[in-house]
Simulated scan of single mutants.
Amino acid sequence: MSQSTQADPRDPSAEVPLSLPKAWRKEAPDGLAAISMFLSGAVMVMRNRYFAWPALLVAVASYVSAKPMRQKDGGSGFSGIVFAFAAMFSAYLPFLFLPNVAPSQVPLPQ
């Protein structure tokens, strides 16, 4: 029962260094995720519901364009989508629960 040294997967001489694809080598911060988080935070602070839609769009774009090298640090882009939905929920929540009162019916301060 003889084994060839070429067929042995444990042979240290057959080791090759790990080489990543050139497209993944650049460790750049994810700018789309940062923009999405900024817009979502602006929605929650300023109550400007018109920022919620671009925040959601940018969060989805960040999730779609995520690369595996960015995911090793824990940034998958899914948290940006959740944060954008939370911003949209907080912006449109007053429309669901507050009564729609005409301006003529609002009592004037005395």
Score class of each variant (00 low, 15 high):
98 L>V: 08
16 V>W: 15
2 S>K: 07
27 E>T: 13
3 Q>I: 05
13 S>K: 06
37 M>I: 07
63 Y>V: 00
18 L>P: 09
85 F>R: 01
14 A>T: 15
26 K>M: 07
89 F>M: 07
71 Q>S: 12
54 P>M: 10
43 V>R: 07
58 V>L: 02
62 S>W: 00
55 A>S: 09
73 D>M: 06
8 D>Y: 00
57 L>M: 13
9 P>G: 11
35 I>L: 12
52 A>R: 10
93 L>Y: 15
87 A>W: 01
64 V>P: 00
36 S>R: 02
44 M>S: 05
107 P>Q: 06
19 S>G: 12
66 A>L: 07
86 A>G: 06
11 D>C: 07
17 P>W: 08
89 F>I: 10
62 S>L: 00
49 R>V: 11
78 F>I: 10
45 V>G: 03
5 T>S: 10
57 L>S: 13
88 M>E: 09
108 L>M: 04
60 V>Y: 02
110 Q>F: 10
68 P>T: 02
64 V>L: 09
1 M>N: 05
68 P>V: 03
44 M>Q: 11
37 M>R: 06
28 A>S: 15
75 G>L: 04
38 F>W: 08
80 G>M: 07
37 M>E: 11
72 K>Q: 13
28 A>W: 07
46 M>I: 00
65 S>Q: 03
6 Q>A: 09
56 L>T: 00
10 R>N: 13
11 D>H: 09
102 A>F: 04
100 N>Q: 15
109 P>W: 01
50 Y>D: 08
26 K>E: 07
86 A>V: 06
108 L>R: 08
83 F>C: 08
2 S>N: 10
72 K>H: 10
34 A>G: 07
39 L>K: 09
29 P>S: 06
61 A>R: 02
24 W>N: 11
66 A>H: 03
12 P>Y: 05
74 G>A: 03
8 D>Q: 04
70 R>C: 03
25 R>M: 08
9 P>F: 14
104 S>C: 12
80 G>I: 03
103 P>K: 13
48 N>V: 00
83 F>E: 08
93 L>V: 09
104 S>T: 15
75 G>Q: 02
5 T>V: 11
45 V>R: 09
80 G>L: 02
4 S>H: 02
92 Y>T: 12
18 L>V: 13
21 P>S: 12
14 A>W: 12
45 V>Q: 06
18 L>M: 09
